[in-house]
Each structure stands twice: as C-alpha cells, then as structure tokens.
Amino acid sequence: MPNSTQTAPVRVSPLLVINREAIVDCQGLRLEQRPTLTAIQVLAFAKQFDGVAKAITKALGVECPTKPGVCNSKDSIQVTWTGPNNWIVICEEDDSLLAKLKMAVGKKAAVVDQSHGRCGIRLSGVHARSVMAKNCALDFHPDFFKAGNSALTSVAHMNALIIQVDDESYDLFVARSLARSFVHAIEHSCAEFAKA
C-alpha cells in the first residue's frame, strides 16, 4: 500500500503545448482556451425527461432547456440540450457538481462525468461569425442563431457543441483527443484577420 501523503493531482489540458494567454488575439478576433471545466452529462430514463429537467432546474437555479438548440446559463453554469433525452451541464471546475446532480435526479437519470473528455475554447470578436462560417455549415445570422442558442454539429470536420455566449462570442466544445487538431483548424481560418 502506498503512503497517503501525495499531493492533489493537477489537471493537464490537452492544449498544453499551445497554452498561450490567447491562441489568437488580434483586432476583432480572439481565440482562447476556456479554463479547466467540469462537464456532466445527464441522461433521462424512459418517460423521465420533464421530471429530470425540473430537477436540474431546481438544483442549479438555471432553467434546464427542454427544447433543442437551447443553452441556458447563469454565472458560470451552462445547461445545454444535447439530445432528445440528455443535457450537458458545464461550469468552471466544481468537484461538487457531479454529486449535486446525482442527488437531484435520483433514479430518474444517469449522471456521467465528461469533464476530462471535453475541451472548451471560446471564439470572440467582430470576425467570430465569419470564422464560424468558414468551419460550419449552420446559419449564424443573428435572426437564426443568437446568444443562448446551441448546436451539435460538425465544425472543421469534427463533432462539436457550439454555444453562442453573446452577440460576438461562441463557446466550442470538442472531444479531448481532437482538441489540438480542432484549435489548429480554427486558428488557420483566423489567419486572414490576424493582420500584421
């Protein structure tokens, strides 16, 4: 048996090697990694969808969306519809969230930790929409996609969760293993705005 005087482990992001202040920072465009996150997927069992949504709403104080393409947020918590029977709750690192959600949903839903499996980046600035249009086939016109909207779709040929944060900012979540390729692709399509 080992001795128990070890220090707490430190989470290492998959973007470590490009861990700069911001990945892109130029006039009208900024690309940065979101700080270490907690991401919990909640999957409702049969006929429990509405009950689970209510339980999440009550536990977090954020309206859990029952409609597709919606992300509701409060402070640092984002609650996003991610499928006909499931959501993902994302916030800045909070070790208590998993237990809190498990307690809230009881036997109505499965609660699965995905914190280490997702990498979050934020793209913001006046050119952010143009960069999105280069990498994604969705319509980001403000009449159709605005703050509080979300989508699961293909971004730069990789599966991603998009959450529009405000008029000029998007949060993008991708699989950990793809994080570097993903950021590389987004960075590439920012190049034309990064005037010397």
């Binding site: 997927q41 999957l43 409702a44 069992f45 049969a46 029977n85 499931n86 839903a109 499965a110 699965v112 930790d113 995905q114 914190s115 280490h116 499996g117 997702r118 699989a175 950990r176 293993s177």
Partner: peptide
C-alpha cells in the same frame, strides 16, 4: 427497454 448510454471514450 429502459436504458441509457453514452460514449465515455474521451473521459478516460
């Protein structure tokens, strides 16, 4: 069948 499942390949 009352069952749910999801990929956790990336988590571990």
């Amino acid at each position: 069948l009352d069952v749910v499942f999801c990929s956790v390949t990336e988590q571990w």
